[in-house]
Simulated assay, not measured.
Amino acid sequence: MSQGKSSFTPIIFYAIIFTFFSCQKKERTYFEAIALNDVKLSNPKPGSWRYDHDEKFQKFEDFQKVKKIKPETGKNIIYLQPIGEFSNLQKNEIKLTQEYLKIYFQLETKILPTLSNSIFPKSVRRIKDEHEQILAGYVLDSILIKRKPKDAVVLMGITEKDLFPRPEWNYVFGLASYENGVGVTSIYRFSNGSLTESNFNKSLIRLMKIGSHEIGHMFGISHCLNANCVMNGTNTLPETDFHYARACSLCQRKLNSSIPYGNKKRLLELKSFFEKHHLNSELSRAEQDLNLFQ
């Protein structure tokens, strides 16, 4: 009996050791860890983007097959092109957005010298609801594409004038040509036409969201149907406000496959940015991601 018992014990011991080390090797990836912080989407309500648009879920495998812009050596800088007459608060809003996009995409991001509104001919201006609007397509085709720096992966125009895409439309938050890597957004409606100290952070985070959303599209990421995410489609400012500035785990995985940055470094920098500028909801989400990852 004693011999049979002694010969059997080591087998159990080795089995336990093997199981232990096997489990140790199966640690969660960064994306698996932060997926626990993803907030699933509820059923769309009338008037929302998903209610009005029947879009296909873009899986990671689908994303890999998409033709898209990628940063490459000598062509890896994000440029912001201000166009208009900006107040000091608006200039600060653009500067902070530049800092944010640099962290979000982990790419060098620069602000070009401001262009005057005189660059818009009379033929692309109109008065709507007692304020001036600019034809968004003209900004892309006749200004940004022609001025895109050679080392730019993306050029994003920012105007203080309201934008419209075509005569029958009232307005648009922005417009982009993903193939050419150029886009434009207006800050006019982010602060109801008047940026003040009291609405500064609300306007800032809207610009941060719209800017990272449009550039995310240029890098091949479709509208997100996975979770509450900056890449969700949006019809209105309240819908934009409801969406997080945080990219969900799936959209982060897509972005990181095109831009090989360190996820922990990015997350720590985002946390620091949100903390410094008192963006408390996004700070809380960054801290939750860090806790899950660590």
Rank of each mutant, 00 (worst) to 15 (best):
G262W: 08
K148N: 09
K276F: 00
D54P: 00
R166A: 14
A247P: 04
C251F: 04
V230D: 06
I259D: 00
F105E: 01
R147T: 15
S186V: 15
F219K: 06
L255D: 02
T185P: 02
N235H: 11
T234N: 02
A245C: 02
P82V: 14
F63Y: 10
T236R: 08
T234P: 00
E27D: 12
N228S: 08
I16Q: 01
Y178D: 02
P46T: 03
Q81D: 15
L80D: 15
F190P: 02
I94V: 12
H277W: 04
N291V: 12
T234G: 05
L144S: 04
D162R: 09
N37G: 14
I205G: 04
F242Y: 14
A15K: 00
G174Q: 03
G183I: 14
M218D: 01
K26L: 08
C23K: 01
L107M: 05
L41N: 09
I145W: 08
E197I: 13
K95A: 12
S212A: 02
Q3G: 07
A152P: 06
F21P: 05
L175E: 12
E72S: 05
I34A: 09
L89H: 08
T97P: 11
M208N: 00
I205Y: 15
N199H: 07
E61G: 06
T185N: 06
L250C: 06
S87V: 10
F13Q: 08
Y178I: 10
S6Q: 11
R126S: 10
G137D: 07
S87P: 13
T19P: 01
K128F: 03
H213P: 02
V230A: 07
S191Y: 15
S48P: 04
K68R: 07
S212E: 05
Y188P: 03
V154W: 01
R125N: 07
V124D: 06
A176D: 01
K5L: 03
N235G: 12
N180I: 03
